[in-house]
Design a protein around this nucleic acid. Sequence first.
DNA 1: TCTGTCTTTCAGGAACTTCTGAAAGTTTAG
DNA 2: CTAAACTTTCAGAAGTTCCTGAAAGACAGA
Lengths: 193, 193
Amino acid sequence: MPSPTSTPDAATALGTQGRWREAELHVADAVGRLMEFWGFRRHLGRVWTVLYLSPAPLAVADLADRVQLSSSAMSLTLSELGNWGAVKKTRLPGERRDYFQAETSIWKLVTRVMRQRELRLVGETAEALDRAEALLDEARERDELSAKELRFVRKRLGRLRLLTNVGERILGSFLSGRAVDVDAVRKIAEPRA
Amino acid sequence: MPSPTSTPDAATALGTQGRWREAELHVADAVGRLMEFWGFRRHLGRVWTVLYLSPAPLAVADLADRVQLSSSAMSLTLSELGNWGAVKKTRLPGERRDYFQAETSIWKLVTRVMRQRELRLVGETAEALDRAEALLDEARERDELSAKELRFVRKRLGRLRLLTNVGERILGSFLSGRAVDVDAVRKIAEPRA
DNA sequence: TCTGTCTTTCAGGAACTTCTGAAAGTTTAG
DNA sequence: CTAAACTTTCAGAAGTTCCTGAAAGACAGA
């Protein structure tokens, strides 16, 4: 590590704009963790947050400086954010470089992800369960399972299948703005013995 | 790779019990992907599923064989599942080894995770936002931001903060079995310009 | 208490994800 | 059409997560 005098400390290294910039980064990190938890790369949340908190659109270099990312990583991150509709590119007239600003309707963002990703995921699980159910019939013919086992497995598979329906219903209600009936969910997810 | 005759193909390698066992694994994989998506290791979902589909409790070695994991990995996976209350250990009398069976109330499992993990996460985000708000006041005194910027940032921070409230409310409603009022959520997540 | 069986812990290593820096590609003003 | 300013792509590097095999630990029966 270089000498202290030539090495600015962490706070300073993150920009000379003082403590607010630092605090902003903390917020960005918090949102980043949230996004990471939701299955996105942390930087997506960080970058979006910095834009969301910025009164004016920001240039790529500016962003890269604030979140400490190389411009190549920025490019990737921004295009991914763009694909989700989370940021918009704004080109100022007579300017060569791109400016970005955040989509501010979080509802739009959330529902888009749900439609495009969660629904598909649940659907795929449902398909796998249906395929298994079909194979179960085959297994029956081959006598791989006893009649008793067969009944048991069929019941359990059925329950899992029901749960995928619940998942689809929750997502559907949410997306269409209808209230989610939690009690119905519970009844299915917590069956009588 | 050994000679073809000595190398059973993939299907056979996964157990000699035929196609049903294979199909079961597909289901386990599907659930595993779901769990992975929800922030758990894939194997947690796979192992739980195999147990859920088994009429009788299974021994560790048995499980390890079915999901193709070393016994050390199995140990880790099972204890993690145990921590979440997703599997129960059953010791048969006069038997030395452990048997496991799945918790079948998925409602219990889901709500436990929400209480223990999601709520905390949202809470931490809220804290970060509160800290930032406090620092914003400092920044004001130091004239790091103009009055206009200050107002803007404060508004945006406020919106994010409101969202954490919404998150907590959704989780709370869900956990207590009350219906989730999606429209209220939308109003906050999709503010008028 | 001793022994064999099963389980857990741990250190090393494999596989995967994600970042960086350099080079190639684009775009616009002149 | 050319050149400068940015942006994107790509291959390699770094970091991280996760798994394995070996060794230590725990337990039940003799």
